[in-house]
Design a protein around this nucleic acid. Structure first.
Lengths: 376, 376
DNA sequence: CTGTTAGCGCTTTCAA
DNA sequence: TTGAAAGCGCTAACAG
């Protein structure tokens, strides 16, 4: 008698069949619920169901997968689960997957310099599709590599626009615009930018910021821009640099809340009070953003909707293939991999501005406004 | 010709065999690297290896798993990946798993009221073992249920001492003691406690706090204790209650950094400056703890070591079974499931105190110390 | 409506 | 040192 590695007594489909006095086929048919072509008498159906439950039968997913050529498992690629925004996407994604009978395996990598190879072990040939979370994962070549292996790949929070992966994102342009207009309405004109330094790509939000500012006739000197790694430490360092620089912004616009957390910390340590001396705006609206000191005004990404949309897109794509052998639902062109980035399907969701306490009117800043005296 | 659900052209072992002009058996033997019983000529070995590489062969894990009765996959149960402390464990866990050739599937559940059933879909009969992260997951019955299905289960950050699951934890008693002694050394005598309200269990750290305080002859009135859900919001609410209460603590001890984040926010909104008016100590040392305003003094859990130890324990347990059919390495008694909680193996790691800016000597607090005038 | 049969891709006795 | 063959547990033609 066999003993499964991780379990105890394995009850197989055959056991159920014997006990219920029907064939394996019947049991299989009842349990998979595929009654389309053939019908099953209500009596046997009940008997099978009852027996399976009584025996505590759990289908062996590996056997099923081997047979059906699908695992019911999705690979989720994430650069760093420790990033609150990435983490925030998981529950909603998991919910969609669970509702549709899928599981997921999480492929995690701490390094920012990911070659596709680093994901190999996880993508060991048996996931039905891949969901890629965030920008800081998969460079161009790695991306191409991934697409070579898997038909069904969808990205979320994947801002880069030269990606070949169909993806669902927040509308960065609109988000940055919301932030800028909020600041402008409060009288701010000198706005500094704290952004992410990505490995393969510039920070898209920075581009948007620059062009939106230019469009409004506001110039942004290079010294008013500080880039750093995506972390509170990165934000802290960037803010420190900005405070030392020869610019006197009245507001900081951060490309991510995580950066803003570091910025806030650096500012308060230096004695620059927020928002009295300086206004700070974030981007993402991670859970902690509501509990910084002061609570952060930020551009909210519709996290749950983002996650749901992406997961649904991916699953639809996977299941679509079943019906018509090899549809290319996610690509507008027929030839696989032949399209240029513009041909790749993109979904854009709309962000909103949530105003908390880290921003205020620039006029509130009185005579003690020339805070550069207090800076080193 | 078959077309895999998620992939493109599947290269099978048979393909490699044909191409290399050897039998499947040989290919399998070379690739699995099990050369113990039989030797393989260096020439064929090289040929096989080369062909496999050239063809881009990737073993089908489902087929292999079906045959070997092990999936090489671990189930990781987590109450809420959104919790920074839980998230912080993942990378180290993932590293150990990857290094030993395992993957993991993450089972996520948002609800605090978890029956074991909620994990069923994930644990669909094929994981080699289960790693349980945190306290807020799996009640007693669910735990028993899990142990009924899996031999190999290990918990991390699972403080409850009535658990039947072998687990590796930080030494809470020592941690709380560190915090108390730090506060005491700074002259604090009135210490309030902000804790987690768990579903199945009291907050163990509260118990420790109470007994440690009593041991030092310090009484803690019930009004100086506030419990809430494990979130910044929970901490915020708890602090608000504490500020309104008829007690005048000079320090808050928080059972978790996440709570402390909310506490800090509530305090600063109410104008109670930290640490001038009130000192605050956290527990966990989540990444953000270094970037709160002010940076948080906290009890650091050795996250990486915790994760590594637990993952290693689990994997050793799984692989131990292979050698001697059914060892009960993790239990001190022979009869499966028969032991009482005391029999279950527990590993305790030592926490350290990291002093940042949220605590200060109580004597620094001058005449404006009677902050209760400013409280509603 | 139900059963028989074949086989997914791999590992593993057993025999050569 | 290598190969032939059986079979893990399940599903999907194809018969009946």
């Amino acid at each position: 008698m066999h003993r499964r590695a991780g379990g105890k007594i394995p009850v197989t489909l055959k056991d159920v069949a014997r006990e219920a006095e029907v064939s394996n086929t019947t049991v299989s048919r009842v349990l998979t619920g595929k009654v389309s072509p053939v019908m099953i008498s209500e009596s046997t159906r009940q008997r099978v169901l009852e027996t399976a439950a009584r025996l505590g039968y759990r289908p062996n997913l590996m056997a099923r997968g081997l047979r059906t050529q699908r695992s019911g498992t999705i690979g989720v690629l994430v650069a760093d689960i420790t990033d609150p925004f990435s983490a925030a996407l998981i529950p909603a994604i998991a919910a969609v997957f669970a509702a549709r009978g899928y599981q997921f395996v999480l492929s995690h990598a701490m390094s920012d310099s990911l070659s596709g190879r680093e994901f190999e072990p996880l993508l060991g040939s048996w996931v039905d599709g891949v969901l890629v979370l965030g920008d800081r994962v998969l460079g161009r070549e790695a991306e191409a590599d991934l697409l070579k292996h898997y038909h069904h790949v969808v990205g979320v929070a994947r801002t880069r626009d030269n990606t070949m992966i169909p993806s669902v994102n927040v509308d960065d342009t609109h988000g940055i615009r919301l932030a800028i207009e909020h600041l402008l309405a409060l009288g701010h004109r000198q706005i500094a930018f704290v952004g992410n330094r990505l490995s393969w790509d510039m920070d898209r939000r920075l581009d948007v910021f620059l062009s939106e500012m230019a469009e409004r006739g506001l110039s942004v000197p290079p010294e008013a821009i500080a880039l750093g790694p995506h972390s509170a430490a990165g934000g802290y360092a960037a803010a420190t640099r900005l405070m030392d620089a020869n610019v006197k912004p009245t507001a900081f616009l951060c490309a991510a809340d995580l950066l803003a957390v570091g910025v806030l910390c650096a500012l308060q340590e230096a004695g620059w009070r927020v928002p009295q001396v300086l206004s700070v705006v974030g981007f993402d609206d991670i859970p902690q953003a509501a509990y910084t000191s002061p609570p952060l005004t930020t551009v909210r990404q519709p996290v749950a909707e983002l996650a749901r949309t992406a997961a649904t897109l991916l699953l639809d794509s996977i299941e679509g293939e079943t019906e018509q052998e090899s549809s290319n639902e996610l690509r507008s062109d027929a030839a696989p991999l032949a399209g240029s980035p513009q041909d790749v399907r993109k979904v854009l969701l709309t962000p909103t501005l949530v105003v908390r306490r880290s921003t205020t009117s620039v006029h509130l800043c009185g005579s003690d406004c020339d805070h550069n005296v207090s800076s080193g």
